[in-house]
């Protein structure tokens, strides 16, 4: 206990976040037998959304730039990762390894997309940046909706707009434009999701607590002051943005491999906003908050099924109430007093 107390506050919070995730994983594993199929079916999507929220929190909370196209990176990760998994089916028969490789490939492709988009986008700031990211998210969606990619004995073939891949008889059309990908082998497991969440936390915490992270936060707090002391703004913005995109890509692969079919329209503007809601609800820069918010808001619509047709209305109302409650000075004050009283009691 003392050892924990002696650590500095950030490290302690980070370890508590790791601990909470491990604990949640352990509890769910213990209860696995008695969980409803409904909740069991949501475990992997929850992990994917948690990673999405964490990665967006890096852009929005740590870097301080509003991104409205985050689902675009998830989409790139989903499609490239699943394509890789299908192409590597014979080369790597061992499923967990194939999933890992696919997630890596998904992350790399999403990272590249993040880099390319980041170069023009990060020259802007504030509202302008938000709108441009939104546009890029839509561009990614349109491109994938018109992309045809197939695999046969001669290798990969791809075409845009219409299917001109001209595959051999035994060829396999992997991405079929608006049809997306069908017949995906469902490799994602809750354990894989848990590992990805832990890895994302590890990457984000270490990035934030490094020299680079402090530079990123300096850019967020005052870019002119940061520039005047010699911080290369574009470079640090890009580092944060690309890391965020790559993590989103890995989450996209995890998400896509949990279903047999995936279409680009799934990752639209609404999906981006949903992830932003997780981040805002959990608190900007607060990773633990993002995890809780993502998990709770993924379960919530399902838990509200008994409201039937009014489900999404109730969901919206709950969302408003939670937002109001977490931002209410009276409630915040109550928690602060509670903390104060505890501290007082501990000192006595």
């Amino acid at each position: 206990m003392n050892a924990i107390k002696n650590l500095n506050k950030t490290t302690r919070n980070n370890f508590l976040t790791y601990g909470a995730v491990v604990l949640a994983y352990a509890v769910v594993q213990l209860l696995m037998g008695s969980l409803s199929s409904s909740l069991k079916g949501m475990l992997v999507p929850i992990c994917a959304y948690v990673v999405m929220a964490l990665s967006l929190n890096l852009t929005v909370g740590v870097l301080g730039e509003l991104s409205l196209g985050h689902a675009g990176f998830m989409s790139v990760g989903a499609f490239s990762g699943v394509t890789a998994a299908m192409a590597l089916q014979e080369l790597i028969p061992f499923a967990p390894l194939r999933l890992t490789v696919s997630m890596l490939i998904g992350a790399v492709f999403a990272g590249i997309a993040g880099f390319l988009i980041g170069i023009p986008v990060l020259r802007l700031n504030g509202d302008y940046l938000a709108i441009v990211t939104l546009a890029f998210g839509e561009i990614i969606k349109s491109i994938i909706n018109n992309l045809y990619l197939g695999l046969d004995g001669k290798g990969l073939h791809f075409s845009l707009l219409t299917d001109r891949t001209a595959l051999d008889e035994d060829g396999l059309l992997i991405i079929g434009g608006p049809m997306g990908i069908g017949g995906i082998q469902r490799l994602s497991t809750f354990t894989a999701g848990f590992v990805l969440v832990m890895l994302s936390l590890f990457i984000i915490f270490n990035l934030v607590n490094s020299r680079t992270g402090r530079a990123i936060m300096a850019v967020r707090d005052n870019s002119i002051a940061a520039e005047s002391i010699g911080i290369n703004i574009t470079k640090y913005k890009l580092i944060a943005f690309v890391t965020s995109a790559a993590l989103a890509g890995a989450a996209g692969t995890l998400f896509a491999m949990n279903y047999t079919t995936i279409v680009a329209n799934k990752f639209d503007f609404n999906a981006s906003i949903l992830i932003l809601v997780f981040v805002v609800l959990g608190g900007l820069g607060n990773m633990f908050g993002s995890i809780v918010a993502a998990a709770a808001l993924t379960i919530l619509p399902e838990a509200l099924r008994e409201f039937d047709d009014y489900r999404m209305l109730v969901y919206a109302i709950v969302l408003i109430l939670v937002m109001l409650a977490t931002n209410n000075p009276a409630i915040q004050g109550f928690f602060a007093r509670l903390r104060g009283a505890r501290k007082g009691a501990a000192e006595q």
């Binding site: 409904s38 998990a295 838990a303 099924r305």
Partner: peptide, 9 residues
């Protein structure tokens, strides 16, 4: 979370 899952189930 468990409470919610109970509702969902």
């Amino acid at each position: 979370a468990l409470g919610l899952s109970a509702c969902g189930g």
